[in-house]
Design a protein around this nucleic acid. Structure first.
Lengths: 204, 204
DNA sequence: TCGATACGCAACCGTCGCGTTTCATAATGT
DNA sequence: ACATTATGAAACGCGACGGTTGCGTATCGA
């Protein structure tokens, strides 16, 4: 990865070892603050150190700047992908979008999304990392579901998989982003999106 | 509006009047900086004053804080709505989404979108203003197009207009947000989105 | 002409964060 | 024990910024 400061697995083994606990609390504090809606540019090393209960020195010994720290923090996120092995494309898609919807209720997820979408221009490394960790795996899962549906004959053979993904994910994104003005998302939102979209995806 | 400092239309009429030009350059400088990707929290009054070629005093005389200034700056944006009087729902929707797509190439629009989407939690007044100025009018136009299509029989009578808008706008949002990784959007993107979506919107 | 107000500019103080250094202390290998 | 390295705390100089004040000038109505 090369974002960390030296002393990764290397030889040196003299003196007091670095505290694993300190490292954990630093990362956790960073994620917490991001999850509270603090933008990357507003994150302060001092604030992180204070919340993590460590000295600034301990942070600077590991990361040379804020972005490196945030990149490593994001790297610890392993977004759990929903297991989808339903009996139909519809079930899989509903399950998938339901996970997305539920996640959007957690502020941590929402704020991380914000960072991914807004700070992407200013922090390309960060955006790339997020894309690699969170976006691509999910794209792959969804594409697989759709491709399976085509093979099974549930979906049109000429369906544009990329466009279908854009429609499904986009519709959910639209709701989580815009209609999240005070009001909660309806319970059956995933079903409604999928049913409306599938109408055009199925064979004639 | 009440965000401005006194002396709006009120009686007082002694002494040198406030410079309209200064006001313009302040607002313009603010919009420029926002358009360059500077987040609201990163905007500095000093930076705005410097770019606008005015003294800080001139800003503080008009707005008591940063958010008030940004709110007024956003208020000057009158996003030109595309004239849609096409002969079909498809034409209208393609025209509409094409405008959205083209706008997403201008950094000012993209950055303003970022602010609307990310800073909405932290600056509710700002988000509300943006919603009122940019989102709602466009929602209304699109809803009208779809409703007209239903009346004409081009679309299913039972079509969920809100959901249809989410699918169409969401698909475009998805592309402008995620696939804008270095690569440009295809010229026929609007057509492809509309054609794919309409497949499920038309009467059986 | 005169009073009032606005202007740009510069200086000011207080705050905050950065990145560094120093310090006494804690934890490890030999 | 001893050398070595890490730790949290505190303080440092530095620069950016907020918000205020004063200065000399410009522009208005009366």
């Amino acid at each position: 990865m090369m974002t960390r400061q030296m002393a990764e697995g290397a030889a040196r083994a003299a003196g007091r070892p670095r505290s694993e606990k300190a490292e954990k609390s630093i990362i956790e504090a960073t994620l917490e603050m991001i999850g509270e809606g603090i933008a990357v540019s507003e994150l302060s090393i001092e604030g992180i150190a204070s919340r993590a209960g460590v000295g600034k020195t301990t942070i600077y010994r590991r990361w040379s700047n804020k972005e490196d720290l945030v990149v490593d923090a994001l790297a610890t996120l392993k977004p759990p992908l929903p297991p989808l092995r339903g009996d139909s494309v519809r079930d899989d898609l509903v399950a998938y979008l339901t996970v997305i919807k539920d996640e959007s209720r957690h502020s941590r997820t929402r704020c991380i999304m914000n960072i991914a979408m807004s700070d992407s221009d200013r922090h390309p490394r960060l955006a790339a990392r997020f894309d690699e960790l969170a976006i691509q795996p999910r794209r792959a899962v969804m594409a697989e579901v759709l491709r399976r549906g085509i093979e099974r004959g549930e979906l049109r053979p000429d369906l544009d998989v990329e466009m279908a993904m854009a429609i499904l994910s986009g519709a959910m994104l639209w709701h989580t982003k815009w209609s999240h003005r005070s009001t909660d998302l309806p319970d059956d939102l995933a079903e409604r999106i999928v049913d409306e979209a599938l109408r055009g995806f199925r064979p004639r």
